[in-house]
Design a protein around this nucleic acid. Structure first.
Lengths: 155, 155
DNA sequence: CTGGGGCCTCCAGCCACTGGAAGGTCAAGG
DNA sequence: CCTTGACCTTCCAGTGGCTGGAGGCCCCAG
């Protein structure tokens, strides 16, 4: 199988596959003309990675998960640990994003009420407190470190 | 005000402020010794950016929002447009992440039931269908293009 | 006058790709 | 046999939003 074929069958872009080989995530043979040559198990691995990536695992996670999959020695516990850790990060991220939309929705709603001379969105960004009545809901809740970002692919 | 002071008062790291100046997002004077010199309005702008970033706006968004804030000419409508667009992206991202955790939770739960010889997580990644009973819940729902990523800071 | 902190610039790296240039290879059609 | 065009190769550079570090000024207290 040439790379284009593998790309089609795995759903991963050609460039991405080459990149994965570059960083040692997958290997491939070469045919006499210098073209990469893939077999079914390479394709299998790439699909594995693709699925893990679509669940938001990092490439480093993918490396570990693949190693576990190869090993099959008490792999389940380790895989579960990785997955659990990952779930934690994803859920933190969700909470963070939900807090963002909540604030944003509120600001846009204020904007929709119109009839004010000033834009509540810009005011909030400028003052750190909205032109709304409840001053408690300033944006300060967002200022903490989040340490959770760039989940999912195409980041 | 020197950069360290501004950093403390704005909550943004020193390096980040220098970076923002680098890309032309903020300006600053220089004192005779070459140190950056900030005034209140610079601080104000940096806080503005910090808040916008904490709501997940990109630096390009920040640039536009700041321009609107400076202009004050029919700014509200434009700001609302930017915010609305941003909300859309954030909400898409949330749905995506929720779908991820749903799948992950399911896999970890399967793993917890134990007594199987094989790890359901690794099996799912390998086969693209879980060792669960309902084959409908494969991961294929995640495979679509998402075009929404890298929201939030510290990406 | 020495030490330590703050400030400066510049370069490199992070993640996970992605685009593009410049060129080799292969199969079909004229 | 030659061309065309699809496919493949490598390498380099850029994305966003920082962050770390090296090497070197500046300034003030002791």
């Amino acid at each position: 199988m040439n790379i284009g074929n593998v790309s089609e069958r795995s759903g991963l872009p050609v460039k991405t596959i080459r990149y994965y080989e570059d960083i040692g995530l997958v290997r491939s043979e070469r045919s006499s003309n210098g073209y990469r040559l893939f077999r079914e198990d390479h394709l299998h691995k790439l699909k594995f990675i693709g699925r893990a990536r679509s669940l938001g695992f990092s490439l480093e996670d993918c490396r570990e998960l693949m190693a576990l999959y190869e090993d099959r020695e008490s792999a389940a516990a380790d895989a579960k640990e990785i997955a659990r850790h990952h779930i934690f990060r994803v859920e933190q991220k969700i909470v963070e994003l939900q807090s963002m939309t909540a604030t944003l929705q509120r600001l846009v709603a204020l904007c929709d009420q119109g009839n004010r001379p000033e834009c509540p969105i810009l005011n909030d960004l400028a003052q750190g407190q909205s032109s709304s009545e409840d001053k408690e809901m300033s944006l300060s809740h967002c200022r903490e470190e989040s340490a959770v970002d760039s989940l999912g692919k195409k980041a």
